[in-house]
Design a protein around this nucleic acid. Structure first.
Length: 501
RNA sequence: GGCCCCGUCGUCUAAUGGUUAGGACGUCGCCCCUUCAAGGCGGCAAUACGGGUUCGAUUCCCGUCGGGGCUACCA
């Protein structure tokens, strides 16, 4: 690593809507790297594509970062839902820096390292099709590179639209050192005269990114692997400006189960989606941090502080990692059971519980005790937030007993249904004496007491459970009775008794 | 097609020349037990393939195969 120079890294999202989990991981690793080296972590918004502008996109990203507990030192911040900027290298929104890019592009033209190109999109499209048809590599044919100063001026004054292209040096090769992958080189002759400035006056990513990384003092560029192929273009641009090239680290991609780049279409990809579903931010962060990196120990649970202490760029992997929901669910469940280890979610706030509440039937919600019991029962048996939408199917027996055969009421150690009937009648007798107000506390004591006296607990508990749920597999009978309330419980037992004749 | 990157259980990964190739998730089985779930215990499961280098390769080199990314006036 460079000696003496203070580390400055950034997260530079394009505000196109939601925050992709892969982008979140990039932000997290940058954050961790900065903290680890006592450097600066700043945010820059790369809003140079007018066609992809999304109202509120930048605000949304900032909000998500706050929700995930990732704090930056410089850049845009949200105050009362409005963006304000902090730091000495601003503005941090590229749309506010247009003049800088334009001047830089002109400077490159003046020094002969870039040139205006008047080729219209239609020509470029046709060219590309011809190249594909001829099965030769696609790319700009450098037609406008040959234009003389006179013609350029003539066409510009005539008001012809143009872009500015980089004059790619021919021959030789460009090599750079990636902190994760080592030395990588590309042949210059295979590189395109790519566009720096678009005809609408906005810069492309390549131009704006390099200028800003330089002007904002970026020491290390930590970004996704999808940028690896364009890195030589970036290196050459730095050199054209005679600027020092920063260190690069290209992170392995997050993958779909089929190993393609993690994308919408194959499930949720936005951090906001997971948060909205009731996942704990700690679980998402812990999970994502371990995709492509680990400290080499057998530790699985990491707080943000742990990560800050342990993180090292040397231990980042080279190959992509599949986003496996099973492990995310397991981690989420861990944080659900170990509130004390959560560092972000207020201990008394439980989004997951709020989401489950929405599935409790109206007639139950009016009975506070029953509602609490049902909530607890459902909560305990879910395998993760992804189960929440399936509550209606999973717990449909709470609404209505599914049709079931009376033989299901027969406990495996019983000889005849008459025994089951007797047991049910005894259960009914006992619990019908319980006062509505004492229901919650007495039901368990009385039922278990009866089961104990029977000598064979199953002889009481099995028929009761089936009577209440209509299922061969379900939560315990007492749990269900509490969730159902006194009236419904008695009704279902009566129905079961009536089935046996 | 061209360029670049990658390749340890199904998944996330540990082990960078010498391990019975370790852990976690999932899965399967057992125990517990009123069913299920939970919990406890245990099992199955991997170095892509072929050549080298070496006394010895998961580890270093080459090739093959496989996967992915990029190939825009998007980032």
């Amino acid at each position: 690593m460079e000696t003496g120079k203070k580390v400055r890294v950034r997260y530079a999202p394009s505000p196109t809507g939601m925050m992709h989990v892969g982008n979140f991981r990039t932000a997290l690793y940058n954050f961790l790297f900065a903290r680890k080296h006592k450097g600066v972590f700043y945010i820059r918004i790369e809003d140079t594509d007018q066609s992809r502008f999304v109202e509120g996109g930048a605000e949304n990203i900032l909000r998500t970062l706050v929700a995930m507990g990732i704090e930056h030192d410089e850049g845009p911040f949200l105050k009362n839902d409005h963006i304000e900027q902090k730091g000495d290298f601003g503005p941090y929104l590229q749309s506010q820096r247009l003049i800088i890019y334009q001047q830089s592009a002109n400077q490159l033209i003046a020094s002969g390292k870039a040139y205006p190109c008047f080729c219209v999109p239609e020509r470029l499209e046709k060219l590309r099709q011809e190249q594909e048809g001829a099965k030769i590599p696609t790319g700009y044919d450098r037609l406008c590179r040959k234009l003389g100063a006179e013609e350029i001026e003539k066409r510009q004054t005539a008001g012809e639209k143009f872009v500015v292209r980089f004059k790619m040096p021919q021959g030789d090769e460009t090599t750079f050192e990636d902190m994760i992958r080592g030395k990588i080189s590309f042949q210059n002759k295979l590189l395109d005269d790519y566009v720096l400035l678009k005809s609408d006056g906005y810069p492309t990513y390549h131009l704006a990114n390099i200028i800003d990384d330089y002007l904002m003092g970026t020491t290390h560029v930590i970004r996704g692997e999808e940028w690896l192929p364009s890195t030589p273009k970036h290196v050459l641009l730095y050199k054209a400006f005679d600027w020092q090239v920063p260190y690069f680290a290209h992170l392995p991609l997050l993958l779909n189960p089929d190993r393609s780049k993690l994308s919408k279409r194959q499930g949720d990809v936005a951090v906001e989606d997971y948060l909205a579903k009731g996942y704990y931010p700690e679980a998402v962060l812990n999970f994502v941090a371990l995709l492509g990196w680990n400290p080499g120990t057998e530790q699985e649970i990491f707080s943000l502080d742990d990560l800050t202490k342990e993180f090292s760029i040397e231990r980042i992997h080279k190959s992509g990692a599949i986003f496996d929901h099973n492990k995310l669910n397991w981690l989420d469940d861990y944080y659900h059971k170990h509130k004390e280890n959560r560092w972000l979610t207020p201990k008394d706030v439980d989004l997951r519980r709020e989401l489950i509440k929405e599935f409790i039937p109206a007639h139950i919600i009016s009975n506070a005790n029953a509602a609490t019991a049902m909530l607890g029962m459902i909560e305990q048996r879910l395998h993760g937030p992804s189960d929440i939408p399936h509550i209606p199917e999973l717990f449909s027996f709470l609404e209505n007993t599914p049709p079931y055969d009376s033989t299901l009421l027969l406990w495996k150690k019983m000889k005849s249904l008459a025994e089951a009937k007797t047991a049910l009648i005894k259960i009914k007798e006992i619990i019908s004496h319980i006062n509505e107000n004492d229901w919650d506390e007495r039901i368990e004591i009385d039922v278990m007491d009866l089961a104990q006296k029977y000598g064979d607990r199953g002889a009481v508990l099995w028929p009761m459970r089936v009577a209440l749920s209509g299922l061969d597999k379900s939560p315990g009978p007492v749990e269900i009775a509490k969730s159902l309330g006194r009236k419904e419980t008695l009704k279902r037992i009566d129905e079961a008794v009536a089935k046996i004749n």
